[in-house]
């Protein structure tokens, strides 16, 4: 049984790859959306922080002997703490200025971080092993499913939904959304808005680092791994619009799948398909699929 002359194994394999890419798009665009909602800043450093997460996992293993599971907890905390420091010392001074300055500052930080890592580790990747518990795979009859890839899709889906729940369904999330609408009023109710902003940025950064740890065994740990991804994630964000958390998640996974399908049917366009979709969405619905017109 073939689909348009494509054997089902190849099709499903590419769909799985697309789903994994989509998981990373979703996690990263979710972090960008959360940060943008609160800080009104597009965090260009997001890709570098994702890369830092992967490197943190590598350092933990090679210098402290702490494996994958520890890295999954410690790397986001560590990189998130760096994010908190960045917010406290730099981003804080930009809130009253044009949004573009935030983009420029975080772009500069991304260059600094990438340059430092490239200096130290060159541009070739460092290997990171799949943890013993997740090696091997399942034979589903119609295709072979590596355990680690299934794990990545499931855990990223869980993290995305947990973030959605946190922001849309809890009291803390309500404060957060209220502070996005009117920070002065929320502060007048006795809620420490500046601290909430700091923690939001830290959380968004931690999410990027978490994605980086998940990515380490799939892609190699590479100083350049974030810089190319971040531009695609920007396109994802433009397509989805940053108004909705669920929108970011759906757009991320959806575009990953579309990219996977393109790899099967028209491989030449696989690197550009997301950008083409972005252009089309902008022409038809400028606010993005889930965006609110400002």
């Amino acid at each position: 049984m073939d689909f348009f002359g494509i054997p089902p194994q190849a099709l499903l394999g590419q769909l799985l790859l697309g789903l994994i890419n989509g998981a990373f798009y979703a996690m990263l665009s979710l972090g960008l959306a959360v940060i943008f909602g609160m800080l009104n800043i597009i965090n260009f450093t997001h890709g570098a922080q994702y890369m830092m997460g992967a490197f943190a996992a590598y350092f933990l293993l090679h210098y402290l002997g702490l494996g994958y599971w520890w890295a999954l907890i410690l790397a986001p905390i560590g990189v998130g703490a760096v994010g908190v420091a960045i917010e406290r010392t730099m981003l804080r001074h930009l809130y009253k200025l044009d949004h573009l300055y935030g983009l420029l500052l975080t772009f500069g930080l991304a260059l600094v971080v990438q340059g430092l890592f490239q200096n130290e580790f060159g541009s070739s990747g460092l290997p990171y092993r799949i943890p013993a518990e997740l090696q091997g795979g399942q034979n589903l009859g119609f295709m072979f499913l590596p355990n680690y890839r299934a794990w990545v899709v499931l855990v990223s889906l869980a993290v995305c939904l947990a973030t959605w729940f946190l922001i849309e369904r809890t009291r803390l999330g309500a404060y957060l959304r209220a502070a996005t609408e009117n920070p002065a009023l929320v502060q007048a109710f006795g809620i420490n808005v500046p601290r909430m902003i700091t923690l939001t940025y830290g959380f968004g950064v931690a999410l990027a680092a978490f994605a980086g740890v998940l990515a380490a065994p799939i892609y190699q740990v590479n100083p350049l791994m974030g810089s190319n991804l971040i531009i695609i994630v920007f396109a994802v964000v433009v397509i989805g619009g940053m108004g909705s958390i669920m929108g970011a998640i759906l757009t991320g996974f959806g575009l990953g799948l579309i990219e996977g399908l393109t790899k099967v049917f028209y491989p030449e366009a696989s690197s550009t398909v997301i950008f083409v979709i972005m252009a089309l969405v902008l022409l038809v619905k400028p606010a993005g699929l889930f965006g609110r017109t400002a």
Partner: peptide, 21 residues
């Protein structure tokens, strides 16, 4: 100086945005 150029460029960005707009 290789990748240090990147670091220096990035640092100029940061300094310009923070103090030298």
């Amino acid at each position: 100086m290789g990748s240090w150029v990147l670091v220096i460029q990035g640092a100029i960005f940061v300094v310009c945005v923070l103090t030298f707009r």
